[in-house]
């Protein structure tokens, strides 16, 4: 870590049941190493799956040729434990060489996107997207930019700006206005304009104030998944 940089205590990586996203884990590990922070990984959506699996007719359609198998709580539990083990293995491989301290939590937060909007000083959130079923890869390249969505109205917006410039002094800045804290100032067309800009820029990483993301999560999430970029939320 360099002088006059934002002091971070932890990098929070959120993964869902789709499994470990190597690119998201790698990005989170690099961030933690860069800011000398701890990496806390959360495996989310536990509660929903546990409830679904307990239903008498519960079954799973596998992505492997559409095979169906019966589900119950025990099967789901084993499946999630297996997933957690895969996540551990992936993080160990990524974090070991750079000596980043890390932990893995199984979090049953149905409303986790809202929770991320709660300011937590000294933390960063890295969100991963489930990989596309088609396996279509995003064109590789080294010059994919960091784009920071700047919301000058909020403290998280200012923090996002600091983090982005610390990561890349030439990061592209995209100003937006209005935040979830002040619904009166909400700009409904803000997400669309941002996504149109991101479509053109095709960034590697998007740094967002977490409150702004929480306010527009439903619209932003699928579009950002399609862009296949790392999403960094700054509380």
């Amino acid at each position: 870590m360099q002088a006059n940089e934002p002091a971070l205590r932890r990098v929070l990586l959120a993964l869902d049941a789709a499994g470990p996203s190597p690119s998201a884990i790698s990005f989170a590990v690099k961030l933690a190493a860069r800011f000398d922070a701890d990496l806390d990984t959360m495996l989310l959506t536990q509660a929903e799956l546990a409830r679904a699996a307990a239903l008498p007719f519960a079954s799973e359609i596998s992505l492997l040729a559409g095979l169906e198998r019966r589900l119950d709580s025990a099967v789901m539990q084993r499946s999630l434990e297996s997933l957690a083990q895969r996540v551990r293995t992936t993080i160990t491989e990524a974090a070991g060489p750079v000596r980043v301290r890390w932990s893995l939590h199984l979090a049953a937060w149905p409303d986790w996107e809202q929770r991320l909007a709660v300011p937590t000083a000294g933390s960063l959130f890295v969100l991963s997207h489930p990989p596309a079923h088609t396996g279509s890869r995003y064109p590789p390249g080294q010059d994919r930019a960091i784009v920071c969505v700047v919301d000058h109205d909020t403290s998280s917006g200012q923090a996002a700006l600091e983090i982005a410039t610390a990561l890349d002094p030439e990061a592209t800045l995209v100003p937006v206005t209005g935040s979830a804290v002040d619904p009166g100032a909400r700009d409904d067309r803000g997400p669309d304009r941002l996504l149109a800009r991101l479509e053109r820029l095709r960034p590697a990483t998007v740094v967002l104030p977490s409150s702004w993301y929480a306010a527009h999560a439903s619209r932003l999430r699928p579009a950002l998944a399609r862009l296949d970029c790392n999403l960094l939320l700054v509380p």
């Binding site: 049941a17 409830r51 519960a58 799973e60 992505l63 789901m76 297996s82």
Partner: peptide
């Protein structure tokens, strides 16, 4: 009905 992602695929739940 909700379509939920599981570690191995998808499940459907009311």
């Amino acid at each position: 009905v909700a379509l939920l992602r599981t570690p191995g695929g998808y499940t459907l739940a009311p």
